[in-house]
Design a protein around this nucleic acid. Structure first.
Length: 642
RNA sequence: GCCGCCAUAGCUCAGCUGGUAGAGCACCUGAUUUGUAAUCAGGGGGUCGGGGGUUCGAGUCCCUCUGGCGGCACCA
């Protein structure tokens, strides 16, 4: 009996019934068979060794493709689990999926693992790979499988099967070694030897069973796995490069900011960091002015009663910074700006002619974030949002949202960040409002995004509890994604705080609120910027734009004069008249990522010129002081001023 | 908050099995006046994160607290 196998290029060839993917691959070429990790049979991923019994569309999955890598990584997780169970008897396996660049496996064990165990575990993993154990696929029925896993003390596995698998549905178990086996959809490699050597254990972490804080905490071992050792080395290199960009490291080295233990999650901005901040804030303010926003400022601390009315006290009290006065009042630092903005909206009577009212604030907020979540500038307890609330009529939601999307994309791109995609976060499990409301609100956000020329990626269940939102996901210079910028629809707060306007009909109406931010928090955004440019800020953002460096002390007076002239042109300039060689100064300021070094020696001082050297190049440009002023001032203009 | 790891000079780090602290950079002083990625010499600087314990003796071992790091959970 023969069957027809159809290849991706359309060719059809006959094979004996029961032929395996591996046999077909070997028939094509030795190299291909070696690189193969699994096959696709009629669109489904199958093991290389599984017999094909009927006509099928056929495709070989190789280890250097994303799908192939995932299979490889899954095998690595299984090999890890086997190694751990052999070395640490009594450890239970739970769950071991593939991640973006590797895999992890969650184990239940009373004794803690330590990273010191990694060497031993990796060694055992290599032994398992070298032993080239066949990986066997077995089909079980649910009840037998549960009984089996219970009998060997794997209660987490038994529980998973019980809940995930429908009664009567067959399940597959993959095993290698004498007795090691795991519930798995597959496919897997034919044998452990094919995993190769491109893997490494990376880190150890606690993780809750099923991701729920109420459950037992398991021990998670993370690893990375690649198709070969070269790719692994390249990955480790990339990780190292990313670490060099760490904003916490650069922030200290560049004297931008610091944090200390008496103020966890609070930032001490140094002069250079604050210069960066002011430059960003001034730029955004200009963009908002141009886009028809008004700017306000609301109180930092307000009475408990106020937060009760807004609903925050009920829901977010544990995360609020609350203080009590000697007179017994209970006050809270503002965790958000929106209730304050509603108060300004409500001051006096608003007409439909006032809408849309776009109310912006660089609002400093405080939130008591869990200690374990704090992370440099990325997650802090005191932060400033580039916040704004657009009060509008329902029929203005779409056009306001569309205009906002365009503004946000333009601002992100001015900072050198590209929009990867926009996510539409839809109704969460726990939510306020009827299904009709959510249908309408989600449709409005979708239509607005499309009107701005973007097709959002749906983020199922990620919406706020009161309404859907659009989140901007941007991509930095080394391909990392950041959620940065958001617009959220809100019908609830205007209602709670009783905001209203007089319509054309003379009646009172509820406005709708759009919460929106483009940078998110200034702190976090600056962190992202630092990592994006690895500290080498573009000229318009650089805290110090020009260093005037002298060659001999004869030129010192002229250096100060030149610096003063450049400052008159609006540039941020330092003078380096230290008793050092010019080589030393060039090196030092290059490492400090100063965009322009203006060298002055006897010649420049005599001719009233500057020898300019740009960061990243070694070419010199000798120009007159007047030329330098005009040239550098124009280079230092913000993108919206060019 | 939970789990694991870590904490030595301003920074980066060394200090083996317990025997009273060391390097490079930075800083200060002096010499040098220099032409595009590190001039030379000298000097100051640490109650080894805090507290407790074991020991004749603790940077080193144990307990505990604080903080940092990596995850998990959380993120209006």
């Amino acid at each position: 009996m023969s069957i027809d196998i159809k290849f991706p290029d359309g060719a059809v060839r006959q094979f004996d019934k029961g032929v395996t993917g591996l046999a077909i691959a070997e028939g094509i070429s030795k190299g291909l068979a070696k690189k193969a990790v699994a096959v696709k049979v009629n669109g489904a991923e199958w093991d290389l060794t599984r017999p094909i019994e009927e006509d099928a569309a056929f495709e070989i999955i190789t280890r250097d493709t994303p799908a192939g890598l995932d299979i490889l990584r899954h095998d690595a997780a299984h090999v890890l689990a086997q190694a751990v169970q052999e070395l640490f008897p009594g450890t239970q396996v739970t769950f071991g999926p593939v991640t973006e660049d590797g895999f992890y496996y969650d184990f239940a064990r009373d004794e803690p693992f330590s990273t010191g165990d990694f060497e031993k575990i990796e060694k055992r993993m290599r032994e398992i790979v070298d032993a080239d154990l066949p990986i066997i696929r077995q089909v079980w029925n649910k009840e037998d499988a549960i009984a089996h896993f219970k009998s060997i003390g794997e209660i987490y596995k038994a529980e998973t099967i019980d809940e995930v698998i429908k009664p009567g549905e067959p399940i597959t178990i993959y095993s290698h070694g004498d007795k090691w086996g795991d519930l798995c959809r597959g496919p897997h490699l034919p044998s452990t030897g094919r995993l190769g050597k491109g893997f490494k254990l990376m880190k150890l972490a606690g993780a809750y069973w099923r991701g729920d804080q109420k459950n037992q905490q398991l021990q998670r071992i993370y690893g990375t796995a690649w198709s070969d050792e070269k790719q692994l080395a390249e990955y480790l290199q990339r990780v190292e490069e990313a670490e060099k960009r760490d904003h916490r490291k650069l922030g200290r080295a560049m004297d931008l900011f610091h944090m200390q233990e008496e103020g966890r999650g609070m930032v001490f901005w140094h002069e250079k960091g604050l210069t960066l901040w002011r430059t960003i804030e001034a730029y955004v303010r200009r963009r908002l002015d141009a886009a028809g926003y008004v700017e306000v400022r609301t109180p930092q601390v307000l009475d408990r009663v106020f937060w009760e009315k807004s609903g925050h006290w009920d829901k977010y009290r544990p995360n609020m910074f609350v203080c009590e006065t000697v007179e017994g009042e209970e006050l809270s630092l503002k965790p958000m700006n929106c209730p304050g903005h509603v108060q300004i909206f409500k001051f006096g009577q608003k007409s439909y002619r006032d809408l849309p009212l776009r109310m912006a604030e660089f609002g400093a907020c405080h939130r008591y974030e869990p200690s374990g979540s704090l992370h440099g500038l990325m997650r802090v307890r005191a932060f400033t949002q580039d916040d704004a609330h657009i009060f509008c009529r329902e029929d203005q939601i779409e056009s306001e949202t569309t205009a906002f999307i365009k503004l946000a994309k333009s601002i992100h791109s001015d900072f050198g960040l590209t929009t990867d995609h926009i996510a539409l976060a839809t109704r969460p499990e726990v939510r306020a409002g009827s299904d009709e409301f959510w249908d309408k609100a989600e449709a409005q956000m979708l239509a607005a995004a499309r009107a701005a020329g973007v097709e959002p990626v749906i983020a199922e269940g990620d919406g706020a509890f009161y309404a859907p939102k659009l989140d901007f996901v941007i991509k930095d210079a080394i391909g990392r994604m950041w959620t940065c910028g958001t617009i959220q629809l809100d019908y609830v707060l205007p209602d709670r705080l009783d905001a209203e306007y007089v319509g054309e009909d003379g009646q009172k109406h509820r406005p709708v609120m759009l919460h929106r931010a483009i940078l998110g928090s200034l702190e976090r955004f600056i962190g992202i910027l630092i990592e994006n440019c690895a500290g080498a800020f573009p000229m318009w953002l650089a805290p110090v734009q020009v260093v005037v460096a002298t060659i001999t002390s004869d030129a010192e007076a002229y250096a100060h004069e030149a610096a003063a002239e450049l400052r008159k042109a609006g540039l941020r300039v330092h003078v380096d008249a230290a008793n050092e060689k010019i080589n030393y100064k060039v090196r030092e300021h290059s490492l400090a990522k100063i965009p322009v070094i203006a060298v002055v020696g006897r010649n420049e001082a005599a001719d009233r010129k500057l020898a300019l050297r740009r960061l990243g190049g070694d070419a010199q440009q000798v120009v007159t002081l007047e030329e330098a002023k005009a040239l550098l001032a124009s280079e230092a203009l913000a993108p919206d001023q060019r």
